[in-house]
Design a protein around this nucleic acid. Sequence first.
DNA 1: GCCCAGGTGGGTA
DNA 2: TACCCACATGGG
Length: 227
Amino acid sequence: MSPPPSRKTILTQVYQRLFAAYGPQRWWPAETPFEVMVGAILTQNTAWANVERAIARLKAADVLSPAALRRLPLENVASLIRPAGTFQAKARKLKALGELLGRYGDDLARLFNERPLSDIRRELLAVHGIGPETADAILLYAAGNPSFVVDAFTQRVLGRLGLIKEKARYEEVKTLFEARLPPDPALFNEYHALLVEHGKRTCRKREPRCRSCPLLDLCPTGQAALG
DNA sequence: GCCCAGGTGGGTA
DNA sequence: TACCCACATGGG
């Protein structure tokens, strides 16, 4: 009898299987780091297609910059981002983002560089509208830091694999990845995107498609579902 | 019509 | 701490 595979080994296998099944995801689609930050807020509980509409409207109005978002009245911001849903709430959040950057002279390099990752993360979390997932998405996809992003799909996929408890805390899941994978932003980037794609296509909340799941032989839940 | 989407903040027990 | 709920548009 060989010992059961470690969680580190399983995490590596999961990544390889997902990449083989779905290919590179090319996240985060954006022209600038600031656009990534805006997208990270707009995509909260929202389909990406609707975020793209909202961002296109901000660009068309030539207000996709921290200074312009600070200057523009709240109602105008809300009106422009309406397609992204929860637009009143998100308009407030974009204003708060603009204020944060204003404290750094609208210079993203000054916000992101030359201090510990944990300090930057704490400052992001203090901004209205930036929770743990949005903060990590900004750190990873806008700043290029090895900060693993955990979302509902990640929790679901790992829960079904039996690697975490269903109600595991955000930080616990984040640490699981960061402690067992090399701190490589490109890897974290692709891994998170692959987990989202996998969650949408196969490991869905209702009617999971276990029959076509690339992780089936690693997954007790899926094997049980197939009887 | 219903469910869901690349969550967060605020309130209550 | 642990749950609720509001926020709101658009696609399947």
